[in-house]
Amino acid sequence: MSSTYDQIATIIAETCDIPRDTITPESHAIDDLGIDSLDFLDIAFAIDKAFGIKLPLEKWTQEVNDGKATTEQYFVLKNLATRIDELVAAKGA
């Protein structure tokens, strides 16, 4: 079974037509991969379906806008994978 990171990297590659080998765990979805908010909706849709969760995009955006979090915490892919694992774990708890 592939890791959470591998799954989201594949989703991003397929959704945004980005070569898979250019995506790394350190990639920032926005700053490095150039994914805009509309494309990220597509990615969120695919992630929600793949993992059976609901990415709290509005909450994350609010936290970033309020200075309570950085975009790196949510949009660097290794961190995004960790957030997804947390949401999956919380769902199963």
């Binding site: 909706l41 929600d48 609901k54 995009l57 509005e58």
Partner: peptide, 9 residues
Amino acid sequence: EHEGSGFAV
């Protein structure tokens, strides 16, 4: 088809 955070399909 789907209800996301701040979006829906």
